[in-house]
Simulated scan of single mutants.
Amino acid sequence: MTMQRPERGWRGTPDLWLEAAYDLLVEGGVDAVKVMPLAERLGLSRTSFYWHFPDREALLARLVDRWREKNTANLLARCEAPAGTIAEAMLNLCDCWLDGDLFDSRLEFAMRTWSLTDPEVARAMAEADSVRIEAITALFRRFGYDETEADTRARALYLTQVGYIALRSEESLELRLHRIPAYVLTFCGKAPTPEEVAAFRARHLAPA
Rank of each mutant, 00 (worst) to 15 (best):
E19Y: 02
D146H: 01
T148W: 06
G12V: 05
E147D: 15
D118K: 09
L16H: 10
W97N: 12
L42Q: 04
H178L: 13
G163K: 04
E127Q: 14
V33C: 02
S48R: 02
L175T: 15
D151V: 00
E27I: 04
F143Y: 15
D101C: 10
L42I: 12
T113N: 12
R112I: 00
G9L: 04
R112A: 11
D118S: 12
A128T: 14
L44D: 08
L42E: 01
Y183C: 11
A128Y: 03
P181T: 08
A58M: 10
A150F: 06
D95Y: 03
E120L: 13
Y158G: 10
A122H: 09
A39T: 12
A39G: 11
A206H: 13
G43S: 03
W51D: 15
T2C: 02
W17I: 03
P192F: 00
A198N: 07
R155A: 14
E27C: 00
T193L: 05
A89W: 05
I165W: 00
Y145T: 09
R78M: 12
W114T: 08
D55H: 01
A135D: 10
P6I: 02
I165S: 05
S45V: 07
D129Y: 06
L107Y: 00
F140Y: 15
D31N: 13
L25T: 10
R168M: 03
C188I: 02
G9D: 13
Y164T: 13
F200T: 07
E171Y: 01
R5P: 11
A156P: 05
G144Y: 04
I180Q: 09
P192Y: 07
A77R: 15
G28K: 00
P119T: 07
Y164H: 12
L38A: 05
E80S: 15
V30F: 04
T186M: 14
A89P: 11
F143T: 08
R62T: 08
V35A: 03
A110Y: 06
E69W: 04
F49H: 01
S130M: 08
Y50S: 05
F53R: 07
M111S: 08
A156D: 12
E19D: 15
S169F: 11
A39C: 05
S45W: 10
L139C: 11
A32I: 03
K34L: 09
A198Y: 04
D95K: 06
G84R: 13
A32T: 12
E127Y: 06
D101K: 10
L16I: 09
A32W: 02
T47C: 00
L38K: 11
E170Q: 15
A61I: 07
G12E: 11
L116E: 15
F49R: 07
M3P: 01
A89E: 12
A128G: 01
G163T: 10
E57Y: 02
R123N: 14
L185I: 01
W51P: 10
E170P: 02
L38D: 07
Q4P: 08
D31V: 05
L107V: 10
E120T: 13
W67R: 03
